[in-house]
Design a protein around this nucleic acid. Structure first.
Length: 199
DNA sequence: GAAATGATCGTCT
DNA sequence: GACGATCATTTCA
């Protein structure tokens, strides 16, 4: 299943993940929004741009695994490692619709007003699914984690600049590697990158 | 609706 | 020591 699209460059794999279902310990999302991130020296917006480090080691491993990282001192975000071992490109899971385990997801995301907000945004998605640092490196064909592709690729999708990414000169448009399903309420709003000011 | 703001810490410089 | 692949809340229109 997964091996039909992996390994491959994140940029090619990303649109194939739209509509796919990620299931983690009883809660499942149908992905509606993803972003691709390139490898070392290729994509300044990618965690792997400056090579292998402690945090991004999973990205340099084999494809078909989860790369989970902690950011802003409080949020977890999840990626699917796409490229062959050593190339380190991946797809950030930014949003989706809960299609299984909605009750549990609602409990984890108590502040969500509508179900569409349960997994609208990368950090919200990990909370809804119960993903944290312990899931970093998990294979996506296991009992606790699985990724099921559509039989046929999605008919149409949209592309655009990545959210919250600053390239050289703050240019998020250099790599328009954000992919989403138009009209889906679980797609997160676009937010340009804003440098944090000191206090 | 849109915009501003504080929270909070691991990682890299 | 600075800052980030963010979110919830508050404030204003």
């Amino acid at each position: 299943m997964l091996e039909s699209i992996l390994p491959g460059h994140a940029h090619d794999v990303a649109p194939r993940l739209l509509g796919a279902v990620l299931r983690v310990r009883g809660v499942a999302v149908r992905l509606t929004e993803v972003e691709a991130y390139g490898g070392p020296g290729e994509d300044p917006g990618s965690h792997t741009f400056r090579g292998k480090g402690r945090r991004n080691a999973t990205m340099f491993g084999p494809p078909g695994h989860l790369y989970v990282y902690f950011t802003y001192g409080m949020h977890w975000c999840a990626n699917v490692v796409c490229s062959p071992e050593g190339e380190a490109s991946g797809v950030l899971l930014r949003g989706g619709e809960i299609v299984e385990g909605v009750e549990l997801a609602r409990r984890r995301r108590a502040s969500a007003r509508r179900d569409a907000e349960l997994a609208r945004g990368p950090a919200r998605l990990t909370v809804a699914l119960g993903i944290d640092g312990a899931d970093d490196g998990a294979a996506l064909d296991g009992a606790e984690h699985s990724l099921t592709l559509l039989r046929t690729p999605i008919a149409g999708y949209a592309t655009g600049p990545r959210t919250g990414v600053s390239g050289p000169g703050g240019d998020a448009t250099a790599f328009p590697w954000r992919f989403w399903l138009p009209g889906e309420p679980s797609v997160s709003p676009y937010r340009p990158h804003v440098p944090k000011r000191r206090g």
